[in-house]
């Protein structure tokens, strides 16, 4: 299956590639999460665990309905609950399903130094290809939404795949199928945007004047979008970024340093070519391994209490 999916690559980390063009009839897809009809039941979390065979440890109660407490290598989606007192003094319980946003311009992919460890398909889904992942954690730094998590067991990075395995055979993601209230929808991005507009009209008629669609242009739009009652303040929803941005370091790497680096790579390739024909093959990822281990240590020490 993944072989066929490789024909749908439009981007590939740390690689320059010519996207295969034979399969040209794919629509861009999107998952639309309408938080205004979400009841926080966690059926999506349950379905995600079931379909993807994920079983995080049984945790503790930590002062919130959120369980597990954070996204993790085995927790690819998570309901987040925020208690918000609005301007009228009335309580709102803002519940948001968190997980990978599948950015059109994915910070993780840009930041990833391992060739082909992060790919984007023609339908927009951003996927991690585990056998190529070196566990360096750059994707964590590159993500504007703080989504990927590195496993302490296998030192690989994990996140929601938007059920790319299901979508590639014409099924909706598992969370969409499980959602009892239709708060999670899936289809072409165009259809999802149209449907979102209908929802926004209804919400405005119910007094949510700032209702709107979250499809942030800062990352080129996303393939997971939200309908929010308070689209003017996304951060009310357990810290959804008001203006997500890819870290300046990553942007600098891609925008300014990369051309230089490309020159470097080309020079290295040329040198490598001469190296190969004169001396023989060499291990080229060793430095990456060391750097990866360092980042991993850092990220682990950040997470432990």
């Amino acid at each position: 299956m993944s072989d066929l999916q490789s024909q749908d690559y439009v981007r590939r980390s740390a690689s320059t590639m010519t996207p295969p063009m034979a399969r040209s009839h794919e629509d861009q897809v999107a998952k639309l999460i309408d938080v205004t009809r979400c009841i926080g039941c966690k059926a999506c979390q349950s379905a995600c665990m079931e379909w993807n065979d994920l079983r995080p440890e049984i945790g503790h109660f930590e002062g919130s309905y959120e369980n597990p407490m954070d996204l993790g290598p085995s927790v690819w989606t998570l309901m987040k609950f925020a208690e918000y007192e609005n301007e009228q003094g009335n309580l709102e319980w803002l519940i948001r399903k968190d997980g990978c946003m599948h950015c059109e311009d994915p910070g993780c992919l840009k930041a990833c130094p391992a060739p082909g460890a992060i790919v984007q398909y023609a339908n927009g889904i951003v996927d991690f290809i585990s056998d190529k992942c070196i566990g360096c954690g750059y994707c964590v730094k590159g993500c504007p939404f703080d989504i990927p998590r590195i496993s302490k067991k296998d030192h690989k990075s994990y996140k929601c795949t938007l059920c790319s395995d299901r979508v590639s055979v014409g099924l909706e993601p598992a969370c969409v199928k499980a959602c009892p209230t239709g708060a999670i929808m899936f289809g072409t991005k165009t259809d999802m945007k149209d449907w979102a507009q209908e929802r926004i009209v209804d919400l405005k008629s119910r007094g949510f004047e700032k209702a709107g669609l979250y499809d942030p242009p800062e990352v080129g739009g996303t393939h997971v979008m939200y309908v929010l009652h308070h689209a003017d303040k996304p951060s009310l929803y357990s810290g959804l970024p008001d203006k997500p941005h890819i870290s300046a370091v990553v942007e600098a790497w891609k925008g300014f340093i990369k051309p230089l680096a490309l020159f470097g790579i080309a020079a290295a390739a040329l040198a490598g070519f001469f190296h190969a024909i004169t001396i023989g093959p060499n291990e080229v990822t060793e430095a990456d391994e060391i750097e990866g281990a360092r980042v991993l240590r850092e990220s682990e020490s950040e997470k432990s209490p």
Binding site: S46, R55, H60
Partner: peptide, 20 residues
């Protein structure tokens, strides 16, 4: 929501979703 009475605490996924 995460549980059904006293049954689903016997099921791993439900126990993960509301453990304590």
């Amino acid at each position: 929501t995460e549980h059904f009475h006293f049954w689903t605490k016997h099921a791993l996924i439900n126990a993960i979703l509301q453990p304590e």
